[in-house]
Design a protein around this nucleic acid. Structure first.
Length: 337
DNA sequence: GACTCGTGGTT
DNA sequence: TAACCAAGAGT
């Protein structure tokens, strides 16, 4: 049974009967909450940030690249890298033709460099399997490496202007507050989160796509995690969290993620050495990157395992695909640890 | 479902 | 200033 929570203005039905395809299970909103799109889309028309991947002429490929880069990485750091990538590799086949070492260097310090390899692999698949056109089909997108539930739907919505429920950290937070009246989203409930987001979407494709972008923008710029700017929020009058007196988040607290001293820091240091080097480096060069030999070796192994690093028969290390010692037979990357 | 995977700006 | 946070995906 779906129960209307008190003070939840977006749960008002705007159509008399059940909607086609709507299911009345827990976590699904009943009816179309029309107020949210009508408030948010005009606000977005006026306040949307001028991000490079939102400019006219951006292709679905450009959108896909932006979504890869934006996975867990702030807009301000992605923007300049995205511009350079799209200038250098304007089509999937252009990226597919590049070497992995060049791709990893162009990725720079965006973080999570496995994303760069996955994007390269996705570009290869798009070029070879999809005739160099980014798929506009959900399952085909999900089959691409590095493309998960969020990115696949984001490409549909922002690349093809289709009605697709995108669920990211921003939208989860906005829904938690404006719709459910909670202080924050809490742990992901994938199916229910998707149903919530879908229930908010207007029926037609372009408006739904625009609305999804507006929801994310609201979460990124107004309904922020730390200090939400409720005074300037276009949804304030209809926000369940406001109506409830902005109660504090009460759900489980996720343990703070550390970085200093972790394998992630060590891997980052090691990769940084290889990115900055013009070619293969000796083990001694990597030794200088981290003091703890045991942890260092473990991280080198994991980088080799992730195909972010290669080792040559002469013992030296390099980014994948980088040319090894010249003229020496059998000097290519070794599969041995 | 809990962990892991980079990096740097903000509070 | 240490902690929090940022358009998630893969295992």
């Amino acid at each position: 049974m779906l129960r209307m929570r008190s003070g939840c203005p977006f749960l008002e039905r705007t159509r008399p009967g059940p909607l086609p395809g709507s299911r009345r299970r827990r976590g699904t909103l009943c009816g179309v909450p029309a107020a949210l799109p009508e408030l948010l889309v005009p606000w977005f028309d006026e306040h949307a940030r001028d991000l490079p991947w939102r400019r006219p002429g951006t292709t679905p490929w450009g959108v896909l690249v932006s979504e890869f880069m934006l996975q867990q990485t702030p807009v301000s750091r992605v923007a300049p890298i995205w511009v350079e990538w799209l200038r250098r590799w304007p089509r999937p086949s252009d990226l597919a033709s590049a070497g992995q070492a060049d791709v990893l260097r162009a990725w720079g310090k965006l973080g999570y460099p496995r994303r760069a390899l996955r994007l390269h692999a996705a570009a290869t698949a798009i070029a070879e399997v999809h005739a160099d056109r980014v798929p506009d089909d959900l399952d085909a997108l999900l089959a691409l490496p590095g493309v998960g539930p969020y990115t696949a739907r984001a490409v549909l919505a922002f690349g093809y202007r289709r009605r697709a429920a995108v669920v990211d950290t921003n939208i989860r937070r906005v829904i938690a507050r404006a719709v459910h009246g909670a202080g924050d989203a809490g742990p992901a409930r994938t199916a229910a989160d998707l149903a919530d987001a879908d229930a908010l979407l207007p029926a037609d494709d372009p408006t739904a796509a625009r609305f999804s972008a507006a929801l994310m923008e609201l979460g990124a710029c107004v309904c922020t995690a730390r200090r939400p700017r409720c005074a300037t929020c276009p949804v304030r009058q209809r926000c369940a969290w406001q109506a409830a007196g902005r109660p504090a988040y009460t759900g489980p607290v996720k343990p703070a993620q550390r970085f200093t001293g972790t394998d992630r820091q060590v891997r980052g240091r090691l990769l940084d050495v290889l990115r900055d080097a013009p070619g293969p480096v000796t083990r001694a060069a990597l030794d200088a990157a981290w003091h703890d030999a045991g942890q260092r070796d473990r991280c080198v192994l994991s980088l080799l395992d992730d195909r972010l690093v290669e080792q040559f028969a002469d013992g030296r290390f390099a980014l994948p695909g980088e040319s090894g010692p010249s003229g020496a037979a059998g000097s290519g990357p070794s599969d041995r640890p």
